[in-house]
Write a protein that binds this DNA or RNA. Structure first.
Lengths: 114, 114
DNA sequence: TGCAAATATAAGCATATACTTATATAGTGA
DNA sequence: TCACTATATAAGTATATGCTTATATTTGCA
């Protein structure tokens, strides 16, 4: 249980980031998946700069990690973050977002890089 | 588990409210306690209108309930709210705030109305 | 080597947010 | 009924936030 506690300031940083529909959806999509920017753009129907700016905030706070693979930069949850347990707890209360990724896959727009 | 799920919009509403240090502390103080406005003012060292405005937002979203007892209006967590389970999950990751109430009690400023 | 795709960054702007101060309202007790 | 206490509300303001458009950077490939 120790490992899951953070101080109030750190918690508010995380919660403020999660308290935005776009970012919460992004984090939901990253639950068990890696995604690149253009996938978020497609799923969320938002401009690329808007998505990149959200991802930057998430990365600055340590919630996500990025990894370049060729043309694409893939994002994933940072499981080593002090606030990762808090993030997981929050995700347990919202609907799974994986259908959106499956829809992407069906439309042939999902990016695979392995 | 069904009972603890909310849609993304509702979750962001709750998380946005919790993503503020003052409000998260208020919610933390209300975990297992009832408090009146003047106690929050004392503990958080903020102006009464500022506290009242935060409480109004929390009440408007259904996170807390108010009950007048004589001079004072006591606030408590709304355990019937759809987002109560989410709130509880979040609180499990932050330090207990009850020492602050105990300190109030020691200084004779805790309000009891029973 | 040069171009196209994916992404990041910068600047500008409209709206949201969290205070402040001033004032209104409600309950209690003399 | 009046005055005091606790709280709410309103209006104003400074700062934060989330977009937009324009531009820079990085990589793979012809």
């Amino acid at each position: 249980m120790e490992r899951t506690m953070v101080d109030i300031e750190r918690a508010t940083t995380a919660l403020k980031l999660l308290g935005d529909k776009t970012r919460l959806t992004i984090i939901g999509l990253l639950r068990g998946n890696e995604c690149c920017v253009c996938e978020f753009v497609e799923i969320l129907q938002m401009s690329q700069p808007a998505i990149s700016q959200h991802l930057r905030k998430l990365r600055d706070a340590g919630l996500v990690q990025e990894e370049r693979k060729g043309h694409w930069i893939f994002y994933k949850l940072n499981e080593n973050s002090d606030i990762f347990p808090l993030v997981v707890s929050v995700l347990e209360h919202i609907p799974d977002q994986k259908e959106k990724l499956e829809a992407l896959e069906k439309s042939g727009k999902r990016i695979k890089c392995d």
